[in-house]
Design a protein around this nucleic acid. Structure first.
Lengths: 137, 137
DNA sequence: TTAATCACTTGCAAAACGCAAGCAATTAGG
DNA sequence: CCTAATTGCTTGCGTTTTGCAAGTGATTAA
């Protein structure tokens, strides 16, 4: 069969990207992995926002299919798997960073600052480089 | 009444942003305005991907409430309105740019290049500055 | 003064989502 | 060993969101 394209794909690069992570949860999963270093199903499930388990399973499959993450057996535990960002996934760091910087500028809630925003404000280039290199946070 | 917060708001800056444009269509509407200069309901409806009219109306209301766009009567025509990005909306330019650059790197479809990607590849800083200034494309 | 046009709204079927419960494969404890 | 807990999901089902089509009201062009 031919390579299927989403019904939304218009040839626009923004639309291509939104086909992959343009929903409520995908970018939050990527954020949990890129910023918080989450690597297992359980860690992702216990994220800040509370994704439901069936949606998480579905998103992980989609992200794996899209080449954003990989899934491997945990060598140290027969019952758990390790999810990791690929280079393609880690290269979303600048997107996460720009989104966070924008929110930092416009979110009126002073409590909304997190370590991530502090980090990129202090050293954007270094943080981005470390994220792209896949360094654990 | 107190200022309501979305059920997804976790204090994370990425989640704050996704509350506003973390869905299938909002960023595409913003792109049509920021990149293509769309300013009327009809222009937005005729966008590349074919948003349906009820969803467009709903998203425009949400984006207006979030302070991303404004809606004014067209002084030259009693039956049409002019939608414009606010500074908050225009400041999403770096987000759109990083998304497009990422897609340019990873979209295997060689037809997927658009004028926008060409522009930011040739002169990212200038294009970003012009978008933030609200210059018509 | 009749017909288009513009900016929506409404109705309804289909798809996606959210919650809770269940389940199979490990592994830790006794 | 046997049992219980943990991990990583899947299944059912009611609710919400989306997509398509048709309709509406206020201009405005012919």
């Amino acid at each position: 069969m031919t390579r299927s394209r989403s019904k939304y794909d218009s040839g626009c690069p923004v639309a291509y990207a939104l086909d992959i992570f343009g929903d409520r949860w995908s970018l939050l999963v990527i954020r949990d992995m890129a910023v918080k270093g989450a690597r297992t199903y359980g860690e992702l499930l216990a994220g800040w926002e509370g994704i439901s388990t069936n949606i998480l399973a579905q998103r992980l499959k989609q992200l794996e299919q899209a080449g954003i993450i990989t899934k491997q057996k945990d060598p140290d535990s027969g019952r758990s798997f390790v999810y990791e960002l690929t280079q393609k996934g880690r290269d979303l760091a600048p997107v996460l960073i720009e989104i966070a910087l924008w929110s930092g500028r416009y979110n009126p809630d002073p409590d909304a600052m997190t370590g991530f925003l502090d980090k990129i404000t202090a050293d954007r280039t270094g943080t981005e480089a470390r994220m792209r290199a896949g360094e654990r946070p």
